[in-house]
Simulated assay, not measured.
Amino acid sequence: MSSTLTARDLIDRLSAVDPETPVRLAINPLFPFHHGIVDVIAVKDALGRTTVYVTEDGDQQGPVPPEVTVAAGWHEPTEAPRRPRTCIAAQ
């Protein structure tokens, strides 16, 4: 996995897309679902270092598309198995 994304990295990546585009969190590489974002909260730790938290709304909105899991390095590209077509005889 890559190193932690900084606020600058996130701003740079988001500035490359249409500002009206919805943003989702892709969670859990082993069983990936996406979630809506509610807020961005900055807090300081005991040493005065700031960390930004992107909070989600607690509502799983469905599975993450396969192209996202592949691009994230969570899964290998796969194809659905081929199934033979069968005819159902009229009864």
Rank of each mutant, 00 (worst) to 15 (best):
T78N: 08
V68G: 01
P63K: 08
P19H: 02
V40P: 00
D39I: 05
T4F: 01
F33T: 14
R82I: 13
I37P: 07
A46K: 10
V40K: 00
K44C: 06
E79G: 06
L10A: 14
I41K: 10
H75W: 11
F31P: 05
P77W: 03
L10I: 13
R49K: 09
A42E: 14
R24F: 10
H35I: 08
C87F: 10
I37N: 02
E79V: 13
T86I: 08
D39W: 00
P65M: 03
Q60S: 14
R13T: 06
I27N: 13
I88C: 07
P66N: 14
A71F: 07
L14P: 04
R8S: 08
L14M: 12
T69P: 02
P22E: 08
D45L: 07
R85P: 03
A16D: 09
A89E: 15
G36I: 02
V17F: 03
H35Q: 05
V17H: 08
S3D: 13
L10K: 07
R8P: 02
D9Y: 04
G36R: 06
S3E: 10
P66K: 14
P19A: 05
D57P: 03
A72I: 05
A89M: 10
G73D: 03
S2E: 09
D9P: 04
A90T: 14
V52F: 11
I37D: 06
E79A: 14
G58D: 03
V17P: 00
C87L: 15
P81N: 07
A46C: 02
M1W: 00
I11N: 05
T69H: 09
P29A: 10
V43L: 01
R85D: 13
E20R: 15
A80E: 15
G62F: 00
L14E: 10
I27Y: 09
V64R: 05
R24W: 09
A46W: 00
A46V: 09
I41P: 04
G62E: 11
Q61K: 14
A90Y: 11
Q91P: 15
